[in-house]
């Protein structure tokens, strides 16, 4: 840019002009879907209604005000359950993946034969598609009849049964009840199944992040701690954990973002039966009632923002240091 142009256009004008297309594109990208969702959430809009066919086209004439929100918040039974369930699932997965990830990362952060292979194997669950992961777990492992779950419980029952006739100790085993395998497709247990399978899939992610960070840990600090008489546990708490604060923050934040939108696992385990989160609820509404689905979507955005603000408060402070 020559001096003449600079004076004509001002110092900032040209750079701003050049940025404009990108900014406009990004704004449109965000604002168009968001405002459409907002609009749909305030009108009656359904995909199929024989009595009121005018509701099947989105139009300002079908204005419903806060009606969709009232319906979702007070009349539809699943909203608060879905919110609670979303938070429980996300929270549990985060806690389990971080604890397991830390344990495994520390365990394999030493040299042993076959370390390379072990690391690759550990990472591999992360490369499996969520739907495949869910199918594998629910059918092959957690199924109460055909899965590992059923086979193992059956095996234990058979063993106990055969031992009841043993001399001397038989009476002891005769006291044992026959154990029933847990069905993970049930109303109360399907959330647990989802937590188990997602934890299994995402622990490698935590391991991967923690492992790279562990490798940059200062060994002389550890030696100083050894000379100071710190036990392995004390070293872990006082040196390793603070060192990992940042990677832990990253793992928590990324997982919170991803797991608030879990869908495939919930669909495959129980089709939302007894285990729904907000995205699944939106999906259910969207099969006919777009208005309610949009209202739920807006509420989900608000919830995600509340979670994000909380996380950024906690995590962001960690990242800024």
């Amino acid at each position: 840019m020559n001096a003449g142009m600079a004076t004509i256009m001002g110092n900032r004008t040209l750079p701003r002009l050049l940025q404009t297309p990108a900014v406009v594109l990004l704004l449109a990208w965000m604002l168009v879907p968001l405002s459409m969702t907002l609009f749909f959430s305030f009108i009656r809009y359904v995909l199929n209604n024989l009595r009121k066919p005018e509701w099947t086209t989105p139009s300002i004439d079908n204005w419903r005000g806060w009606g969709n929100y009232e319906y979702v918040l007070y009349k539809a039974k699943d909203f608060w359950f879905a919110v609670e369930n979303s938070l429980i699932i996300v929270g549990s997965i985060i806690v389990f993946t971080v604890v397991l990830g830390l344990a495994i990362a520390v365990l394999i952060n030493r040299t042993f034969p076959g370390r390379g292979i072990v690391r690759v194997l550990l990472i591999s669950p992360f490369f499996i598609m969520p739907a495949v992961n869910a199918v594998l777990w629910i059918n092959m492992i957690l199924d109460p009849v055909l899965g590992l779950n059923g086979l193992a419980i059956g095996g234990i029952n058979n063993m106990v049964a055969s031992l009841t006739n043993a001399p001397l100790v038989g009476w002891f085993f005769a006291l044992w009840p026959v154990i029933e395998p847990i069905s993970f497709r049930g109303t109360e247990t399907s959330a647990i199944a989802v937590i188990i399978m997602v934890t299994w899939q995402w622990t490698p992610f935590a391991v991967l992040i923690f492992m790279t960070s562990l490798q940059s840990e200062d060994q002389q600090q550890k030696e100083a701690a050894i000379l100071d008489g710190a036990s392995a546990w004390s070293q872990f708490c006082n040196l390793t954990l603070p060192h990992l604060a940042r990677p832990i923050a990253i793992v928590v934040m990324i997982q919170a973002i991803f797991h608030l939108s879990l869908y495939a696992e919930i669909e495959i385990v129980s089709r939302g039966n007894g285990n729904k989160n907000l995205p699944y609820l939106i999906g259910e509404f969207a099969s006919n009632n777009i208005g309610a689905a949009s209202a739920t979507g807006i509420l989900a955005v608000i919830l995600a923002n509340i979670v994000a603000i909380f996380l950024l408060r906690i995590v962001g402070k960690n990242l800024m240091d």
Binding site: D218, Q220, Q221, E223, A224, A225, I226, L227, D228, G229, A230, N238, L239, P242, H243, A245
Partner: peptide, 21 residues
């Protein structure tokens, strides 16, 4: 004898201070 019980204290080249304390 364990390092901490030997009655020795060491000053390291990189100081090895605990960064979070």
């Amino acid at each position: 004898v364990a390092p901490a019980k030997r009655g020795v204290a060491m000053v390291f080249q990189t100081y090895a201070l605990y960064p979070h304390m």
